[in-house]
C-alpha cells in the first residue's frame, strides 16, 4: 500500500513530463507542416487568383494576392476561345488517352506472359526488357525522329503517340503484381475448361485493378506533362498539346501573365479534380512502385 502511494506521484510526474515533451514535439511538428503546406499551396493559389484578374491587377506594385472584386472568367474565355485552348485540350486528352490505353494493353499482356507461363528464353527476355528501362529518352529521341520522318509520321497524332505505347516500367509493374495473384485461382479456371484469353481478361485483369489504376495514372500524367517529344515532332498549331500551346502562345502574348495563368489553370484543374477523387490510388500506387523498385 505504502509502496504504491510512494510510487504514484513520481510515476504521475514522469507521465506528465513525458506527455508535455511529446506535446511540444507534436505542436512544433504541426507548425512546421503548416508552414510547409503554405509554401506548397501558395504558388498554386496565386495562379488561380491571377487567372481571374485583369492584367493591370496582376502586375501591381506592391503585388496584391487576391482581388475578389475584380474577379471574372474573361481570361478563361479568351484563352479557351480566341487563343484556341479548346482544340489543344482535346489534343492533350486524345493523345494521353490513347497512350494510356495502349500502355495498359501491352503491359498487362506482357506481364501476364511472365507471371503465368514457363517458356524458353523467359529470363533472357525479361532481363532484356528490364535493361531498356535504363535508357534515357534523350538517347533515342534523335533516331526516333529520323524513323518517324521515314514513316511520314512527323507532325501527326501517330508520331506523337507511337513512341509511348509501350513501357518497360509498366511491364515490370504488372508482372510484379500478377506474381502475387494466387495460382490455384487460375488453375481452377483452366480445369473448368476456360481458354487462356478468358483467364487473362475475366480472371487476371479484374484481380489487378489496383496495379492497372496506378499504371493508368502514371501513363496519363506522363503524357499530359510531356513537353520534349511533342516539341520535336509537332509543328502545326492544330496538333499542339497543352504544354506546347503554353510555351508557344506566349511567344505572341509576351508578358500576358493573366492569360498564361488561365492556361496553366486549365492544365491544372482537371488533374487536381481527378486526383482528389482517386487520391488513394495515386498515393498508394506511388508508394507501391517505390517499395518494389
Amino acid at each position: 500500500m505504502t509502496e504504491i502511494a510512494l510510487q504514484r506521484p513520481s510515476a504521475m510526474a514522469f507521465l506528465r513530463r513525458h506527455s508535455r515533451a511529446e506535446l511540444a514535439v507534436l505542436v512544433l511538428g504541426f507548425l512546421i507542416l503548416m508552414l510547409g503546406a503554405v509554401w506548397m499551396l501558395l504558388p498554386l493559389v496565386w495562379m488561380l487568383s491571377a487567372s481571374l484578374m485583369p492584367l493591370s491587377e496582376v502586375i501591381k506594385v506592391p503585388p496584391i494576392w487576391f482581388a475578389p472584386a475584380k474577379y471574372s472568367l474573361n481570361n478563361y474565355i479568351e484563352v479557351w476561345g480566341r487563343v484556341g485552348f479548346a482544340r489543344f485540350f482535346f489534343n492533350s486528352v486524345f493523345v494521353a488517352g490513347t497512350i494510356t490505353a495502349a500502355q495498359l494493353l501491352t503491359s498487362s499482356m506482357a506481364g501476364f506472359a511472365f507471371a503465368r507461363y514457363q517458356f524458353p528464353g523467359r529470363m533472357l527476355i525479361f532481363i532484356l526488357i528490364l535493361s531498356t528501362m535504363m535508357i534515357p529518352f534523350q538517347v533515342i529521341m534523335i533516331p526516333l525522329f529520323i524513323m518517324m520522318a521515314r514513316l511520314h509520321m512527323v507532325n501527326t497524332y501517330s508520331g506523337m503517340i507511337l513512341p509511348a505505347i509501350v513501357t518497360p516500367f509498366g511491364i515490370f509493374m504488372m508482372r510484379q503484381f500478377m506474381l502475387g495473384v494466387p495460382k490455384p485461382l487460375l488453375e481452377a479456371a483452366r480445369i473448368d475448361g476456360a481458354s487462356e484469353p478468358y483467364i487473362f481478361t475475366r480472371i487476371m485483369l479484374p484481380l489487378c485493378k489496383p496495379a492497372i489504376a496506378a499504371l493508368a495514372i502514371f501513363a496519363f500524367l506522363g503524357s499530359w506533362d510531356n513537353f520534349l517529344w511533342p516539341l520535336i515532332i509537332i509543328n502545326s498549331k492544330q496538333l499542339w498539346t497543352l504544354p506546347i500551346a503554353m510555351s508557344r502562345f506566349t511567344e505572341q502574348y509576351i508578358s500576358q501573365t493573366h492569360l498564361q495563368m488561365a492556361g496553366a489553370s486549365i492544365m491544372f484543374l482537371p488533374v487536381l479534380f481527378v486526383f482528389l477523387l482517386m487520391q488513394r490510388n495515386f498515393i498508394e500506387g506511388i508508394a507501391l512502385t517505390g517499395l518494389k523498385g
Binding site: 510547409g36 503546406a37 506548397m40 499551396l41 504558388p43 498554386l44 496565386w46 495562379m47 491571377a50 496582376v58 502586375i59 501591381k60 506594385v61 506592391p62 503585388p63 500524367l221 499530359w224 506533362d225 513537353f227 497543352l242 504544354p243 503554353m246 510555351s247 506566349t250 501573365t257 498564361q260 495563368m261 492556361g263 496553366a264 489553370s265 492544365m267 491544372f268 488533374v271 487536381l272 486526383f275 482528389l276 487520391q279 495515386f282 498515393i283
Partner: peptide
C-alpha cells in the same frame, strides 16, 4: 494531400507560375 498537389501538377504549368513569382518588381 497538400504536399502531393505540386507533384501532380504539370511541369509546364508550374514553370509559368514560378516564372512570374520570381518577377523582380512585382
Amino acid at each position: 494531400t497538400a504536399y502531393f498537389i505540386p507533384v501532380i501538377t504539370s511541369w509546364v504549368a508550374v514553370s509559368f507560375v514560378w516564372l512570374w513569382l520570381f518577377e523582380p518588381r512585382w
